[in-house]
């Protein structure tokens, strides 16, 4: 019921075979382009990483898809439809720092918020919603923390709560903004396994990712971004030194010279 089709949106499907289709997208803040003429296609059923240096516009790209920031130009299609009409097929995991974790609420409560869109106005979350939220908490290994106040969770646990909230949305396209930033290694492994499980069940997962070292291991699709799209496609084809150099410029030396060191680039 939150779903409000807009009059100005065309009714016909466009590129329905793609999970995400972005065309001619430009976003600017105060006349400075943050994203410039982005053309992007993500096929369904892949797990895609969006990588790029600081200020490349990775988060902005996701926010523009979700209509959280105004587009200067261009349009977005999700499974062929405008986002406003495909809203229920999309789940979003914002950066953990985007909310006040001292808010008086429990982990279970936060996860149940993922069902609010399906519940619609006036309906309270009931036993069924509760069960769904508990199941999702179980999937992220947080069932024991359901009644814990969210300020008492560690960063990694908070991130997993956000992930569970996206899981209960039962979406087809998952957009995650740096879900592995600042979490411990155990949590990172759990998150990756979970996202790969979603992909294996045919869902599409798009992740803003900051650690170039792990891209090959975690993902099968990749978008390299630096205001413009530098390269996109299967990781095996796109993850090349040449492409990374074009995106990261001087910072690439770090990656080439010290493959074992944590990536110095793109920690935001």
């Amino acid at each position: 019921m939150f779903f409000r089709p807009r009059a100005e949106v065309q009714g016909r499907l466009h590129e329905p075979g793609l999970a995400l289709h972005v065309e001619d997208l430009t976003v600017s803040y105060h006349a400075r382009p943050v994203l410039w003429d982005i053309d992007l296609d993500v096929p369904p059923g892949v797990m895609a990483a969006i990588v790029g240096p600081n200020g490349a516009g990775k988060s902005t790209l996701i926010k523009a898809v979700l209509e959280l920031v105004p587009k200067t130009a261009g349009h977005v299609r999700v499974f062929g439809a405008p986002y406003a009409r495909a809203r229920k097929r999309v789940a979003y995991v914002p950066q953990r720092s985007s909310v006040d974790w001292d808010f008086p609420t429990t982990a279970l409560d936060v996860v149940m918020m993922g069902r609010y869109g399906h519940l619609g106005w006036l309906r309270r979350p009931g036993r069924e919603t509760r069960a769904q939220a508990m199941a999702a908490l179980g999937q992220v290994g947080m069932a024991a923390y359901a009644d814990r106040q969210i300020s008492q969770l560690s960063g990694g646990q908070q991130q997993r709560v956000f992930l569970a909230r996206a899981l209960v949305q039962e979406a087809d396209l998952y957009l995650l903004d740096e879900p592995m930033a600042g979490v411990d290694a155990t949590t990172e492994r759990a998150i990756v396994k979970l996202l790969q499980g979603l992909r294996d069940r045919g869902r599409t997962v798009v992740v803003v990712h900051h650690d170039l070292q792990t891209v090959r291991r975690y993902y099968d699709w990749m978008v390299i971004l630096n205001v413009r799209v530098i390269a996109q496609g299967p990781v095996a084809e796109v993850h090349t030194a040449e492409n990374l150099r074009r995106a990261y410029g001087g910072q690439i030396a770090l990656i080439d010279a010290a493959p074992e060191a944590p990536a110095g680039a793109g920690t935001m």
Binding site: F2, F3, L68, Y92, S98, V99, F103, T105, G117
Partner: peptide
């Protein structure tokens, strides 16, 4: 929801 996470609330429409 609007008080806790307004951005997420917007993505729910």
């Amino acid at each position: 929801l609007v008080t806790f996470d307004p951005v997420f609330a917007r993505t729910l429409g």
